[in-house]
Computed example of a mutant assay.
Amino acid sequence: MNETQPRRAAPAPLPGGAVTDVRGIRVGHFTDPRRPTGCTVILAEEGAVAGVDVRGAAPGTRETDLLEPGNLVERVHAVLLAGGSAFGLDAAGGVVRWLEERGVGLQVGPACVPIVPAAILFDLLVGDHRVRPDASAGYAACAAASDAPPAEGSVGAGAGATVGKLFGIERAMKGGIGTASVRVAGVNVGAIVAVNAVGDVLDPHTGAVIAGARSADGMWPLRTAEAMLRGEWPAASAPVTQPGGATTIGLVATDAVLDKAQARRLAQVAHDGFARTIDPVHTPYDGDTIFALATGASGLRVDLALLGVAAALVTAAAVVRGVSRAQGIATSGLPRLPSARDLGWIRG
């Protein structure tokens, strides 16, 4: 190496922390004891400006149109992430009920109407598909909410999450839910992500697969994108190759002051964190969706470019933490789905 050239610094480690480091945010999980599924609620009871960006082609969402900058409602009171495919949207009703009982919502005449956008992921291949989050699950998640760092891995919306499914669920691995945060320019930026991708999850620094589709013997990464380019392709009838067969969903939050257009931009840029850590991402079989919340609790306005850099960083970190903290599972009718730690693909 030419000693006159500057040495390249090692990449900074991914951030720790949690989305609850953002002032005005609380998180609660409900994990169903009957099979691996559940839901996660992100509460902003004082109200938060919100945006959303959907990149996958098979989304399942609720109350996303009202987040358009030109539409009337300015603030939301919670966001729900749930398993159970489209059935799981029912859990948002329990969040609405919990908030209404506490007088939290948009006052419309005599009624207090909580505003609760939601997104779901597909986890019906794991266990009895007739068990899925409902209104009571959403209510229970609210009752469990706190501003402490939330549990990660195989809990809440990540309980039934899997990754690397394009070549069959029997060669997939366990996904999960993760969170991270950073502090920049006097404000906090955090993310929480339920990782349930068709594709593999990568280390954003090295590109190494840390969870995803496995080789025929089950021990080594197949590298899904490379296999696809070699011409390998699953049967069209495989369950995961149907619309909605996967989906990674999440939320990025800040206590900076934003308007609705800026919140939407923050959600858009946060998808860069998905692109750094999931390959392939935003496929026809994923409904990848990211919400953004701005509580404004800091009272500070921060350059949106800086907030975007932070949002992409914490989103990438949340994806990695979701799979690194997951636990392998065994359910009726399926071989054991190992976690990244089970196979030693990630340590520490």
Rank of each mutant, 00 (worst) to 15 (best):
R7A: 13
A10Y: 03
P13H: 00
P15F: 13
G16L: 05
V19W: 01
D32F: 09
P33Y: 06
P33T: 03
R35Q: 12
T40W: 04
G47A: 03
G47F: 02
V52R: 10
D53L: 09
V54Q: 11
G56C: 06
A57R: 11
A57C: 11
G60K: 01
R62M: 04
D65R: 11
N71I: 08
S85K: 01
L89G: 05
V95Q: 11
L99M: 08
G103V: 07
L106A: 08
G109R: 06
P110T: 04
I115F: 08
L121H: 06
F122G: 01
L125K: 00
D128E: 13
R132K: 11
R132W: 15
D134Q: 14
P150K: 09
P150A: 13
E152M: 11
G153H: 08
G158N: 05
G164I: 01
T179N: 10
I192A: 12
N196Y: 13
V198D: 14
V198R: 03
V201L: 03
D203L: 12
A211T: 04
G218M: 00
A225S: 15
T254C: 14
K260P: 09
A261E: 12
A261C: 05
Q262T: 02
Q268F: 11
H271M: 06
D286L: 03
G287S: 01
D288W: 06
I290V: 15
R301Y: 09
V302T: 01
R321F: 10
S324M: 05
S324R: 00
G328V: 01
I329T: 14
G333D: 11
P335E: 10
L337N: 03
L337P: 01
G344L: 10
G348K: 00
